[in-house]
Design a protein around this nucleic acid. Sequence first.
DNA 1: GCGCATCTTGAGAGCGTTCTCAAGACTTGT
DNA 2: ACAAGTCTTGAGAACGCTCTCAAGATGCGC
Lengths: 351, 351
Amino acid sequence: MARVRKTVTIRDVAEDAGVSLQTVSRVVNDGPNVRPQVRDKVRASIEKLGYVPSLAAQRMSGSRSYIILAINDRERTLADWRERLGTDWVDQMLLGGILTCSQHGYRMMVELVDTHSDHVERELGAALSALQPDGVILTPPHSENRLITELLAARRIPFARIGSNAPGPGVPLTMGDEGAAHLATTRLIELGHRRIGMIAGPSQYSLSGWRIEGWRRALAEAGLAHDGLIETGDFGYPSGARAAEALLTRNPDLTAIIASNDQMALAALEVARERGLTVPDDLSLISFDNTPIVRFSQPPLTAIDQPIAETVSRAVEHLIARGPEADDRAVIEVAAGLVERASTAIAPDRA
Amino acid sequence: MARVRKTVTIRDVAEDAGVSLQTVSRVVNDGPNVRPQVRDKVRASIEKLGYVPSLAAQRMSGSRSYIILAINDRERTLADWRERLGTDWVDQMLLGGILTCSQHGYRMMVELVDTHSDHVERELGAALSALQPDGVILTPPHSENRLITELLAARRIPFARIGSNAPGPGVPLTMGDEGAAHLATTRLIELGHRRIGMIAGPSQYSLSGWRIEGWRRALAEAGLAHDGLIETGDFGYPSGARAAEALLTRNPDLTAIIASNDQMALAALEVARERGLTVPDDLSLISFDNTPIVRFSQPPLTAIDQPIAETVSRAVEHLIARGPEADDRAVIEVAAGLVERASTAIAPDRA
DNA sequence: GCGCATCTTGAGAGCGTTCTCAAGACTTGT
DNA sequence: ACAAGTCTTGAGAACGCTCTCAAGATGCGC
């Protein structure tokens, strides 16, 4: 099958099948009102000529763009980014999105926006105008960025807010953070732990609050105190180390720590080692996210598996499925689970 | 600035600036032959109205599509992919590509293609027809996939072959694999190691061969043997474990191992631990790639830093810069470096 | 077997941009 | 000062597709 120089257009197909251009369009888009016989003939021609509709032309003529846009921070260099790989959401989000888009004939594009500045409106606006995506996916902390959500709402572009359950426009998706934190804490209590510390994430992330809440609720249910057992980090390694240090110094009786992400948990692991504490014998450790790195630490970390890719996948499906208007208010919740590895054990005083 | 419902088109700008549509187009595209005065007036209107050209329309009218396409394997589920995150190229490639595209007003799209089957032509062809990308990026092992490269060449789409230096169409980019392997091996020799094993990658990757070659050359230069010191894996953890096992069983006198990627190196680390060998006291370990996971193992691995993101970035820049024809034959080579961490030490018999 | 509703098909316009080409304005050389 | 360029500008077609709307074909009820 020699490749022809010229692109095969809908016109070529129409001619080959002996029908009008419009009929071919109907067949391609699974439109109604085409006789099966004609449909088959057109399909045969499409197959024969190897016709594929041009995305650009489709978009031009007012139909869907078949593009889902994911917003990401731009203020990062290549080095910054490399640093975060494997410990961040970006990659999981990308892969979940790309895979799911691909399955539905859509494409995922990533737009890097300076989300901190007041350039948001200009930059994001430009991207929306240029790309005209059928849907947008927001991850924390952008999910609750007013500038962004309002711009999207004003343009009437359907969007998903991952890690947000606040009211407002857009489809909210959460990953059961409160429940997961509760689950993890309860598990530690079952293991006999009584003094369980928390390394929380930054407060501008709603999920930080939910995680704290789940931890606190589990402690309360068991009649345990939580005063002085919490430190806040920024999801980065150094901040995790500082938090763990503070926690362990202030509470020498601590036997377990829950960290709000893997990166900070690894930092806590290192701090424990430096202090001569053995994990899990002296200190149990549970992290959030379950990104790939935690499988290879020593010991491998027990982690709450945040189904990020899965959630993005759900978000994409939702955006694709829904009409441009339907703005269902239901929060979509994807369940998180606990993956027990070697960083948790029976509390030392119980062993 | 109230957001208007309707999209701002080039026509609106023309009207506002009191010039023809064509003149605006010239200004937007930095075309020649526009009086500075007119140019400024048009620019002002563009600014005022917030005009952004529609990508789709631009593509339609025969100009560039501003899309760079990256080809990836499709035969993977979400779970498969999660598994590989942080240890694979995908994410680094994506980020390098996305960032660089973004800097030049381009977009990177990822196409998932079933590269194993004979559907390649159909699937990839469809993607190319639909997207009409200005350039394509191929990573190993696709960089040397004949079906793919020939299809791209036939369609006259510029493309970059990362990790390939074979002649043929497309721009080849390499990361100095031979030199890097030589460097790492030499370093081990400097540390007094005499029996240095190699866990090689699969042979369909050219870079596997280069890495072996660098290792062999360094050994030869030092007058050391390499017989029986090599085992081949498939870049996966289990295969790395098998290879390390075989290597250590056959050569009890081994004091160092170089693994062709991080995943296999981590497997070797685990195997060593199981056998009661301490890294680096009894066995030194160097891995290839330096993906984020190796910083968090115990001990952190000394690794050859493969500048994947950087290389993709270079590839993108090259694709963007070049005219549609210019097919320079020069191989672009991005240098790799050695990052020394705690998995290498002076050979035990020398200590 | 006739009239009306419904199904099927096609013609033509329009989407927002760039390309080609021609016309007018301005230089330059002599 | 005049012919022969060179610059600047604009008009109109083209890109490949879907939309709207109208016309012809077909089915149904009586």
